[in-house]
Design a protein around this nucleic acid. Structure first.
Lengths: 250, 250
DNA sequence: CGCCCTCTTGAAATTGTTCAATAGAGGTGG
DNA sequence: CCACCTCTATTGAACAATTTCAAGAGGGCG
């Protein structure tokens, strides 16, 4: 019986979340150094893995919806997740994209304050909230780590508010590409031909723009030679310096 | 010698921060129940007050600037503080207004990620960061409180991103007034004739609009009878239901 | 190989900005 | 206490950026 026997049902998107318990999944975890698990020793990892289960989501599969009982928190181990809020008439604001190593569900409320959905095929570690909270009592390191994560998210959120409130479409797009590049490097991947797994619509909903405006901004940057659009959702930041100049302080 | 002998030098704005140490200031604190001090008993309050000092800022006085060494964290006890980020060319995004009971400076970085400045005459409690961190080791309740505060701020930040990215000027303005009203009630003050201490420019920089657009939105809401503009920075939410309808999900 | 969905491109419409001028409010000094 | 002065708010008109509406092109999957 294989240890990592994630069943492959999730290609059929939007698919239902698949899950599975697992004996020692953390030892092979490629993102442990960046997650809430980072400060834990192997004995503590055993404790946290005891309350953890795995979830696999196909592209487009929902993880949870805003307003739903917030029973779990998650750690992304592979793929891309988007987190968003809706207005009553359906307008959508994506408040963040999550990549491997990112933590999800920090809000200390009864219900989720946002919805979460897979952009691509994704794997996550799931922790029942009440169990993680119990564990935090014994391992204050986890709580400290969460505070540190929350602080970083707060800084990022303010940066995003600056972008949404004060940057032009062109500046927003440049900032977005640099953000993707930076985060790709943070998790040890290439920073230059950067993978852009999400649709133009998703990018627009993240930047407070329409699909069309995002498309035009990409086209303009491409025609100037600042970026190159490559196959397979790859974008080359041909002139990173120019991009940084345009983005203005990212 | 009076216990609360804050010297009155701050009328001359932009004034330099005034400060003063104090023996037992917390006992008279009117916002203790909402701050980081909330979970502490009187013995613990003594400990935290030992590392605290008071700061008074006149209207317009800066508290700190983005990029500055982040040596202190603060608790607002009276007045209004604005927190903002700037683009290289001077465009400004106000990422939050802080009122009595609010905590400031949570970011766990070497330097402040934003600037802070008094909107009105304000009083704050100041804690040297390294001392507060040392105290947190002994009083994990404080750390838990900070995590709870950070979570709430994160939820608010996402709400603000939805506003900035997807709401119209009219919707933003309605949301803003409701936010002020809600927070006024949270600290036990009237929710209806709400005080709007900040300028139209500040409101614009908070909502991602210009002064003129904010002014026009106020005028329109006034002419419809949804709000009434009263003297002394007061606004009556004559038709709160309509305002909520316009704001859309606040 | 073809179909469907996403992306791109164009033109018109709209929202919000910019520029400009007036009105109002608060504070100061006579 | 009143008049003045300055800063803020309001209003108007022209302009610009982005959105909306509408086709067409491209790419990936079955």
């Amino acid at each position: 019986m294989a240890v990592f026997d994630y069943e492959q049902v999730s290609k059929l998107a939007p698919a239902v979340a698949r899950e599975q318990r697992d004996r020692s999944p953390c030892s092979a975890c490629s993102v442990r150094g960046m997650t809430i698990c980072a400060p834990l020793d192997s004995q503590e990892l055993t404790q946290i893995s005891a309350i953890m289960s795995s979830v696999e989501l196909g592209a487009g599969a929902p993880l949870f919806d805003e307003g739903e009982q917030a029973g779990n928190v998650f750690n992304v181990t592979s793929g891309t997740i988007k987190v968003y809020k809706l207005l009553p008439d359906g307008r959508r604001q994506i408040t963040g994209f999550l990549f491997p190593g990112d933590f999800l569900g920090l809000a200390r409320q009864e219900t989720y304050a946002f919805s979460a959905e897979a952009v691509t095929l994704s794997l996550l570690c799931r922790f029942p909230r009440h169990k993680l909270e119990a564990l935090m009592q014994r391992l204050p390191k986890i709580e400290q780590r969460l505070l540190s994560i929350a602080s970083n998210e707060l800084v990022a959120a303010q940066e995003q508010m600056l972008l949404l409130g004060r940057k032009t479409a062109r500046e927003k797009t440049a900032s977005f590409l640099l953000m993707l590049s930076k985060r790709s490097r943070q998790r040890g991947q290439a920073g230059d031909p950067v993978t852009v797994p999400m649709s133009r619509t998703d990018i627009g909903d993240y930047l407070g723009l329409t699909t069309e405006t995002v498309s035009r901004a990409f086209t303009q940057l491409k025609q100037e030679g600042t970026i190159k659009l490559l196959p397979n959702h790859q974008v080359s930041l041909a002139r990173r310096d120019v991009l940084e100049e345009i983005a203005g302080g990212f």
